[in-house]
Design a protein around this nucleic acid. Structure first.
Lengths: 212, 212, 212, 212
DNA sequence: AATGAATGAGAATTCATTCAT
DNA sequence: TATGAATGAATTCTCATTCAT
């Protein structure tokens, strides 16, 4: 029975162990940043011994790099499926909201990746390729489609996509990173409407003035 | 005699010492981030003994906080004088360029301040008050003036100002932080024109379509 | 197998590690005082890496506080068992000798604890409670018993106990702290006899004059 | 006039400067101990520049050694004049009180000198010769006179003198160093009476039992 | 595979002392 | 002579990583 239990444990834990560590690392990195989060803390939160971390990840740096993994899997895919290329306002609003919540969920992580990028060029490259470009792509696609269909003016989709993402990101940073809500508070839906309004009017051939 | 005194001062004197250290710290922090830059390196670059740093700044943290100083002096004032509230496209373009170069000069520093803000709440507050809000204010002022004069639509200036700053910041981050130019290269002037174009069309009552 | 396990334990195992460090610290503190003894030296003498010290003691200060530990264990208990309250001269002499050797073994340590007490109020409190008061108690008990039995005069046991401990301590300090023996040399047994003589005559109802 | 003023200042200050520094050092050493008191603090309290200290004392250690100076001057002489050798109880009480207040005034300083003695053998020697032996001498003289006159028993004056000084010192240490009054409080006069009582009875040929 | 004790390089900070003015 | 800025050796403590069990 003791043997059985042991086997059970091993079966149950082993494949999960890596995930436990990764999740703990992500949480700790978000809380304290990469450097300030110690492997000892991460191990404690993951419920494993400190040495175990190094069985799964050669160095702490590898743990940082592994934060990129989720962006290469289906979660990311789900997000991108919403980039349909439809240009009517409602579907854009839907896309925007999904985009916003994606940024919101991950901005603290992005902040860390962006920051640590300065020390690890490989991380920077992977971050650009696996996160930034992928995040921009559906927006670019949407814009290109609109330009193509004649709905949008003949702007550069690369430029416009970045400008657009910047418009949104700034509000997430305002609350999630700067914690600046005590200074000025924004209503998420109102911001989305306003940003859609400004951006769409800015790129549409015929500016359809909104109610306000 | 006056000449002699001046020479002495320039050689080894105090007001310069502090600046040397501060400049060295700023450079090192930009290169490696706050944590990875050691006081020993900073001292070496400043050309002073390590202990000398602590004669001018009680702790390394104070050195970080001192990075905010320039934003409380006339340099910042000069920048804000340009926020005249004129709404014609040329003056906007001028303002934009000045704003852009301000962001460009300081984004790497802002990244550090933003990152370290998580460890020092006081830094976060001061960063928001002394840099972020001050940076946004001329834009808000400009927008409010435009709305008032009837040229711009009745948008929320707070929201629009942040959206606008976000539009620009993203391009500076692209080159200065992500070093992502090998992936997509942007021409600064073209970007400015495009962003002005989109933004102005987005907020103007009568969208005046640009040439492209 | 049991033998093997034991061997392992003796080689490198934890409970011993802590003791090694503690012993090395005590030795070094005695040699050089708390401040002048560096953690690097202590580690070297203990035969461990410097970092290992901090696995067992959070700070160097904790190492100082740990010097109090032995006084809370059975060694102290053994000493106090001798405080029987008997008042005949022989048993008093026995008690005195044991007391003297206790003070002698620890006076250098006490000097350090006394000195560092000025920096750490908590240390002072613990030193008083865990060492000083405990050291005085058997003497007070002995005196109270003697007063009660009518052998000693009606003196204040608190005062007399301190006076008595002071009488002895001065001779230990003379040799162990001042190293003043080249100036005046004392024979330990003669001192004990003389001190017993003076003190007993001083507190006894019927002074029984000794032979000298 | 400026010259005159300068001259005045120099006249006025120079001879005092050394004293100012010494007094500031003594105060600071008493407050924080030798090591923890910084030369910068001492300079500030003395009202001189840090460098000035080193014009008068080659090293900080010399400042420590200079603490012994007062014990070589008339202040000490005054104290010793009271050691008349009279043996009646009243004059002994007077002597005791003066002795006690001397110990009280200086015990904190003695603690420092005793402690630092371990690092500076020369200090130890001077401390023994210039303070300890001198402090003991009048007591020894008094005892020798009493033995000679037949009032005291034939004890060893060296031993008895030390025992006696120890009896008193312990109470000063209790309040001045241990700050242990919250644990047990002693009335100074009562302690003196009790100590005289015990000691005199202990060394007198005919024990004259006191009232209690 | 999992453990966690041991490691030791590395970093910020202090402070007595010097010396140019 | 007085100054006080500059110095840099010295010290405590952290933490990623290793490795024997």
């Amino acid at each position: 029975m003791a043997k059985q239990e042991r086997a059970k444990k091993e079966n149950k834990n082993q494949p999960i162990r890596r995930e436990l560590i990764l999740r703990a690392a992500r949480e700790k990195f978000k809380e304290k940043g990469f450097h300030a989060a110690t492997t000892s803390e991460i191990a404690r939160r993951a419920g494993v011994a400190e040495g175990t971390i190094f069985n799964y990840f050669k160095t702490k740096k590898d743990l940082l790099f592994a934060l990129l993994e989720p962006f290469n899997t289906q979660v990311m895919g789900d997000f991108f499926r919403e980039a349909t290329g439809e240009t009517d306002k409602d579907s854009l609003r839907l896309f925007l909201k999904s985009h916003l919540s994606f940024v919101k969920d991950n901005l603290v992580l992005f902040k860390i990746l962006l920051y640590e990028s300065q020390f690890y060029p490989e991380l920077r490259e992977r971050f650009i390729k696996e996160v930034v470009l992928k995040t921009l792509k559906p927006v670019e696609k949407h814009l290109a489609a609109g330009i193509n269909s004649g709905e949008y003016r003949d702007i550069d989709p690369n430029t416009a996509a970045r400008a657009f993402v910047g418009m949104l990101t700034v509000f997430v940073a305002w609350s999630e990173i700067l914690h600046a809500e005590p200074y000025v508070q924004f209503d998420e839906n109102a911001v989305i409407e306003e940003v859609i309004d400004i951006f769409l009017n800015g790129i549409r051939k015929q500016s359809i003035l909104s109610g306000n």
